[in-house]
Design a protein around this nucleic acid. Structure first.
Lengths: 247, 247
DNA sequence: ACGCCGGATATTGGATCCAATCTGCTAGCG
DNA sequence: CGCTAGCAGATTGGATCCAATATCCGGCGT
């Protein structure tokens, strides 16, 4: 019954859709983004596309060169390291703060978020129909969506997993508005790569274990342990991501 | 001989100019930004103005409501507190890191930055021709520049002071790229208010003292002291800013 | 008298059209 | 034979025009 949350403006719609496509890993890093093509593909003129691209640039999702257009931002190794250093700094701080003031209903919220996360994790590993990636070849690096993995589930269930994962962490950290903006930026920056990583069920399973341990520590009210488990969780992620980077 | 660094695109020029006007304190927080007016005032059409405004929105300098336009962002008390909490977190970290690896020529850079800062501070307090603010009245809150303080210097010498101040802190902290983006955002958020604060020579003088003490600690290689002096410096700023806020 | 409804105006959002810039290719010259 | 100049196509940037939405104000009904 929730009437369509239709964005009141086309740019907004374009922005949301493009951001989603980038973070999901369609439109992989490096892809050139032709305004005309995107406009056609979304059924609007080039103007709202341009404005959405500008915003994506400010958000760091696309790189821009004057008169040469936009392309999906790529992640350098140095950038990855810095990203996680900053995440560590912020998340440690937030986790300590949050654990110090964690009340009963906060704990309940974390538990609920974890329940949904487990559901999403289960949904993302249903069939073993995800072998090695289908020899991606050197296809033209342009805005053609790279054919979602066969089967119905993956595309959206992975997006759901990413969302549930983030919600779980957010429930623990309870970031204040500006901190949330920063954290979102930092998480987003690696989402396109993480999408690939989450494609392997084994990785999802390992993450799930981490999450259960973290939940337990939260329930126990063991702040320092939560902090260190989160740090370990990030460390696992960073070394995994290193492998998916160009070289 | 440095040929004009003319931006290759009008949006860029508009972006830079509008941002400067906002951070300088012309276009005070809350001002409504009419696209038509800005476009005329800058000699371009509305299109580049719109795109610049979008970027300023992503940067947090202006607030946007669909179909209702843009206005210069205002700072709430809660926002101010969070701002400085995050600055503290980041700057403590960066300062510790930087002091641990500070080499001789880094120190020289800090010294140079401080010399320029002192010059800027001196230039910003030349004449005592800055009494109480001229009863601002309730003028229509629209994009009319609020008549720069009389005399030739203030407008640009204050901008120079702000720049030199930032350069000094940057020289100490040496932020990595993403950290710099974050810090810039955090500093920018209060610049419009700080502009008012810096209008009073007494405040500039107090800041100058802080800076000298900080420089001394840097030269002495006393990391912990640098960190604590920087913290005190921020504390002074935050309590000063609190006073300039709406209520 | 108060509140709701409807139209006029101003302002923003979007589409189309034109101009400026870049890329790649081809031809001409050293 | 390699390099540079310049031309053609493609793509982005900007301006003008039109549509959609919000605000403001006056009139009507209860």
């Amino acid at each position: 019954m929730t009437a369509f949350q239709r964005p009141p403006t086309a740019q907004e719609a374009v922005l949301v859709e493009l951001r989603a496509r980038i973070l999901r890993g369609e439109l992989p890093p490096g892809t050139a983004l032709r305004q005309e093509v995107l406009a056609a593909s979304l059924g609007v003129s080039r103007v709202p596309v341009r404005e959405a691209l500008r915003m994506l640039e400010s958000e760091g999702h696309v790189a821009y060169a004057a008169h040469r257009g936009y392309r999906v931002a790529e992640l350098s190794l140095a950038d990855l390291e810095e990203l996680y250093a900053l995440r560590g700094l912020l998340e440690d701080h937030l986790a300590r703060l949050a654990m110090a003031r964690m009340a009963m209903d906060d704990r309940a919220r974390v538990r609920r978020a974890h329940a949904e996360l487990e559901a999403a994790e289960a949904a993302a590993v249903p069939s073993r129909t995800a072998p090695a990636s289908p020899a991606a070849g050197r296809r033209s690096r342009t805005a053609t969506a790279p054919a979602p993995p066969r089967g119905a589930a993956p595309a959206e269930s992975q997006a759901a997993l990413a969302a549930a994962n983030r919600a779980f962490h957010w429930a623990i950290l309870r970031p204040t508005p500006r901190a949330e903006r920063m954290l979102t930026t930092l998480w987003d920056a690696s989402d396109a790569y993480r999408a690939r990583w989450f494609a392997d069920p084994a990785n999802v399973a390992r993450g799930a274990e981490d999450h259960r341990a973290i939940l337990a520590a939260v329930e126990a009210g063991d702040g320092p342990r939560v902090v260190s488990l989160l740090a370990a969780h990030r460390d696992a992620a960073i070394s995994a991501l290193r492998a998916t980077l160009p070289r």
